[in-house]
């Protein structure tokens, strides 16, 4: 992120005496810093430490350190790893189409089309909706009888349709479509912002040189857009892998665990069965694997950037 940069001269010139300046800065920072420390840093460290204990909900005996016991159990927990696999399929299945669809939409919204303002406003409607409502809405779309999807299929004579969210084969693809839909605006807006930073003159110069649309995109647009694209796909992957509410409402992990994302699994472990320590270990395993995957992804991307 680009937050830390500041004009140095202003820091030097304004304020005057050193100690007084620092005092003032602390006064400005503390109101935000304290809640972050108490309700974000503290809990996270506490949560990590819980993964090495046998903490349970509502138990009277004191919680004990159990070392790596939770992780040993976790390694043998085939249900969790199945859920983990589903989580990865979901995260990739949502993030990749989301990026390409958003890129297409951003490119369109960046063109001088008629009613562009209206299209821009309508395109971000999903962003304003609660995830629970998005889930409910798509349940209505997928509904076997009253749903618009089966109704359309019947109208075009494409069979009677099916119960999309209860079918073993269709449930995961069906929720992935909803995931793509829900995150499209969040992905489109930064890409559109990035597109608007691409210098017009470069485009015009390339066009003068006879470069076609695809070449112009490859040589002018994409290099300028790449940092935004990299950041937004990485963030989307994290958010999608940790997603909860959408699938909780759509299928609650069913049918037969086919859509049980790791967060749903960990939620049940913690708040249905009260296994706080074990659930924390799951969370830690999730964040570790994500960190490794992202490091590989970002390193690979940066290397291609150097080669290019």
């Amino acid at each position: 992120m680009s937050l830390g940069t500041a004009p140095r001269r202003s820091a030097r010139r304004s304020g005057g005496a050193g100690p007084r300046r620092d005092h003032g800065v602390w006064f400005l920072v503390l109101p935000a810093l304290i809640p972050i420390l108490v309700l974000s840093v503290g809990p996270l460290l506490y949560g990590v430490s819980l993964a090495f204990t046998d903490a349970q909900s509502g138990r009277t005996e004191p919680t004990r350190w159990v070392g790596l016991l939770n992780f040993g159990d976790l390694l043998r927990d085939t249900l969790f790893w199945e859920s983990f696999r589903i989580g990865l399929v979901w995260a990739v299945g949502v993030t990749v189409p989301q990026f390409f669809l958003a890129l297409g939409l951003a490119l369109l919204l960046n063109e001088k089309l008629r009613l562009r303002w209206l299209a821009r406003a309508l395109a971000i409607v999903p962003w304003a909706m609660p995830e629970v409502v998005v889930g409910i809405m798509w349940r209505l779309v997928y509904h076997p009888d009253a749903g618009v999807l089966n109704d359309t299929l019947r109208t075009f004579g494409l069979g009677d349709g099916r119960d999309w969210l209860s079918g073993l084969a269709t449930a995961l693809p069906a929720v992935i479509v909803v995931g793509v839909w829900a995150g499209l605006p969040q992905t489109t807006v930064p890409l559109l912002a990035g597109l608007q930073n691409v210098p017009r003159e470069l485009h015009e110069a390339a066009a003068m040189d006879g470069a076609g649309a695809w070449r112009r995109f490859r040589t002018v647009t994409w290099p300028a857009l790449r940092p935004v694209a990299l950041a937004i796909t990485a963030l989307n992957f994290i958010w999608n892998f940790n997603s909860f509410a959408l699938v909780f409402v759509l299928t609650d992990g069913g049918p037969g665990g086919r859509t049980r994302l790791p967060m749903l699994f960990a939620y049940e472990e913690a708040f249905r069965y009260g296994q706080f320590g074990y659930a924390a270990a799951m969370g830690l395993a999730m964040v570790t694997v994500i960190a490794v995957l992202l490091a590989v992804y970002l390193a690979g991307r940066l290397r291609t950037e150097e080669d290019a």
């Binding site: 309700l39 974000s40 840093v41 503290g42 809990p43 996270l44 506490y46 949560g47 990590v48 819980l50 903490a55 963030l235 994290i238 958010w239 892998f241 940790n242 909860f244 790791p262 967060m263 960990a266 939620y267 913690a270 706080f276 659930a279 924390a280 799951m282 969370g283 830690l284 999730m286 964040v287 994500i290 960190a291 992202l294």
Partner: peptide, 16 residues
């Protein structure tokens, strides 16, 4: 902190 799954935050927050 965006990268951490909420389950890692919510248990300690709940206890706290």
């Amino acid at each position: 902190s965006q990268a951490f799954p909420l389950v890692l935050v919510i248990i300690p927050l709940f206890l706290l």
